[in-house]
Structure formats: C-alpha cells, structure tokens
C-alpha cells in the first residue's frame, strides 16, 4: 500500500474499524515510513488533545430556574 492509501485508512485504524489484513499492512508500512508514522502519531494526539480542551460544566442555577419555568408554563392544566 502506498502512503496515500495508508493515510485514508488512518481513522479506521485508530478507531479499530478495520479488517485484520489492512491493520497488519498499516503496521508493516509505518515501520518503514516515517511520514505515515508521524501522521498516525500526531492524529492520535490531536484526538486526545481535543478531548481535554473542554471542561464539562453544570447548568448554572439561574439558567436552570429559567429552564424549568419555560417548561412549566407549557404544562396542560
């Protein structure tokens, strides 16, 4: 497989959405191709970093009040 094909499969490889044969081909390829190895490593890192840039927050109390008010005024009597 050439680099272009490897790069196309990188996400499937990372997500383990890949056939065994192809997975092995990728692993063989990156042993000898620095370029694809770099792209794989940095893509994985990009995903990891994306996961940590957001901190989960709680709905602020004030907003929560508004939310429940908005819902309650719609209740059928």
């Amino acid at each position: 497989m050439n680099c272009r094909k490897i790069i196309k499969l990188i996400s499937d490889y990372i997500d383990r959405e890949i056939e065994e044969v192809k997975r092995e081909m990728i692993e063989e390829h990156i042993k000898i191709c620095k370029k694809c190895e770099s792209i794989l490593n940095t893509t994985e890192k990009t995903i990891k970093l994306s996961k940590v840039i957001y901190k989960n927050k709680k709905v602020p109390k004030r907003l929560e009040k508004i939310l429940y008010y908005q819902i309650r005024i719609r209740y059928k009597k």
């Binding site: 620095k34 370029k35 940095t42």
Partner: peptide, 20 residues
Amino acid sequence: SNGNYKLEISDWSNNPQIQY
C-alpha cells in the same frame, strides 16, 4: 485529508510543549 496534499509530517506527538 488528501494524500496528495503536502501534509506537515514532523512528529510533534511527544513534544514537551504538549501539556494540558
């Protein structure tokens, strides 16, 4: 994502600048 495109290929995945 096109393989023809000149992708940046330096491997920064272990760069010490990567800190959360």
